[in-house]
């Protein structure tokens, strides 16, 4: 059928390669989302809009870029490990697609996510930049006196003694007992104060006091008695961020703690490039275009993760012949902290085959970390990139923006930004 819709579906993106390469200049979105509820600015930790950017105006080096993708694999391993434990799977098998095997460690998802928001904590409030994470529940920040250790962070470390609204939580508290199901680590008790511990998939960790404090999202959005971790021993790959903002499906997450105020509803729009800004919003606000909703999957019902039922994928407008069981066998989670989408091997093989066919006019380049389908666009100004859509139950189609289809390392190495899992049951 020659309709506008089908023409749109089959028509490839036309992309100027220069537009995909990282810029050193921050271009914040000029149009703030129209909202009535709390909205925070989201920036990429390593981009020019972030005050945590250690590199200033310099671009990240090639080895730093590789590290980002290796950390992404650690996060994926960690998610697999947690869900394997829940399902009774005997263990996670390392990815076959990556060249160097990355050791698997159980624990919470890795804490080195890429997007940060700045919130106010305490009275008077202190500004703290926290990593946004839909894959974990407990929010925490480094706290002085840093009894054991605090890593270097950009902003001053939070000082509980200087806040009039700070309080420790007692070991007898019901929330203290709930910590084990939240973090997977049994709480400790030090002079009647509840002690939390949270360890991430890359061996990063935070240990400290479970506390409550005033959390200021915006000048008009304040959450009293917000439970969080006041970290006294913190190590890992947090790189300048003051801690983590947990948004997962758990009673200790910010979403549940602010449930009465915001109806357990939040949304984000991540910056479309490292040199742009996005937002994180709490409470329902009407978007410019209506949302298409897909139900949370029953597969992850008893976990912290937000599970979705992926039902199909199209490349270049054609739905790929992937049997439904390929998606349903392992399930899918949506995660703000994982960068590259991981697909069941059979699904990824089909996507890669179709994508390579449609890109066969271009010169192939060597693979890059976990990305195995790359092109050398040296001397090429614009390229055609096939459209890719993911389908979810409820008839929801997410047509991936071109900025999410290809990962541009350099003009000579531009890769398909998808990867396969090691096993169909992952």
């Amino acid at each position: 059928k020659d309709t506008a819709d089908t023409r749109h579906r089959y028509r490839p993106h036309i992309v100027k390669i220069s537009s995909l390469l990282a810029s050193n200049v921050c271009n914040p979105i000029t149009e703030a989302p129209h909202h009535k509820k709390a909205t925070l600015k989201v920036v990429h930790k390593h981009g020019p809009c972030s005050h945590l950017n250690q590199l200033g105006d310099q671009k990240m080096s090639a080895s730093d870029e590789i590290k980002l993708l290796e950390q992404d694999q650690l996060r994926v391993n960690s998610i697999h490990s947690q869900l394997s434990k829940r399902s009774g799977d005997p263990g996670f098998r390392g990815p076959k697609s990556t060249k160097s095997a990355i050791p698997v460690r159980s624990g919470q998802t890795i804490g080195s996510g890429n997007y940060i928001v700045t919130v106010g904590l305490g009275t008077p409030k202190k500004q703290l930049s926290l990593v946004l994470d839909t894959g974990s529940a407990l929010s925490w920040t480094q706290c002085e006196p840093c009894v054991r250790y605090c890593y270097a962070q950009k902003e001053p470390i939070f000082k509980p003694l200087e806040s009039t609204s700070y309080a420790n939580v007692s070991c007898a508290s019901e929330l203290c007992n709930a910590l084990e199901s939240t973090t997977g680590v049994s709480p400790g008790c030090i002079t009647s104060t509840c002690e939390y511990g949270v360890q991430y998939g890359d061996n990063s960790y935070s240990v400290g006091y479970l506390s409550k404090e005033r959390l200021t999202l915006t000048s008009s959005d304040v959450i009293e008695n917000f439970y969080f971790g006041c970290g006294q021993n913190n190590r890992g790959l947090f790189r300048g961020a003051a801690g983590l903002l947990g948004l997962s499906r758990d009673r200790l997450s910010l979403i549940f703690q602010s449930g009465k105020k915001y109806g357990r509803y939040f949304s984000y729009c991540l910056p479309s490039s490292r040199s742009s800004t996005g937002f994180l919003s709490f409470g329902y606000r009407r978007p410019r275009k209506a949302f298409k909703f897909t139900p949370l999957s029953s597969l992850t019902k008893d976990t912290q993760f937000y599970g979705l039922d992926m039902t199909g994928i199209s490349v270049g407008g054609k739905t790929l012949p992937i049997t439904a069981s390929v998606f349903s066998k392992a399930g899918t989670v949506i995660d703000s902290g994982t960068v590259i989408t991981r697909l069941p091997p059979k699904a990824y093989d089909a996507v890669r085959k179709a994508f390579r066919q449609l890109m066969s006019d271009y010169k192939a380049a060597q693979s890059y970390s976990i990305l195995d389908t790359c092109y050398d666009f040296t001397g090429v100004e614009s390229v055609f990139v096939p459209k890719i859509s993911f389908f979810f139950s409820g008839g929801v189609e997410v047509e991936v923006d071109v900025s999410g289809i290809i990962y541009a390392v350099s003009q000579s190495q531009v890769c398909l930004a998808l990867a396969g899992n090691g096993d169909d049951s992952d």
Partner: peptide
């Protein structure tokens, strides 16, 4: 599990309606 990662969320606003147990997507300029 498969994981729908953040690189593929770009230019979409993603809404988590935890109360109604659903996730929504809306095209966005951001």
């Amino acid at each position: 599990v498969g994981i729908f990662g953040n690189f593929q969320h770009l230019k979409w606003e993603v809404a988590y309606d935890v109360g109604k147990e659903r996730v929504g997507f809306s095209p966005s300029a951001c």
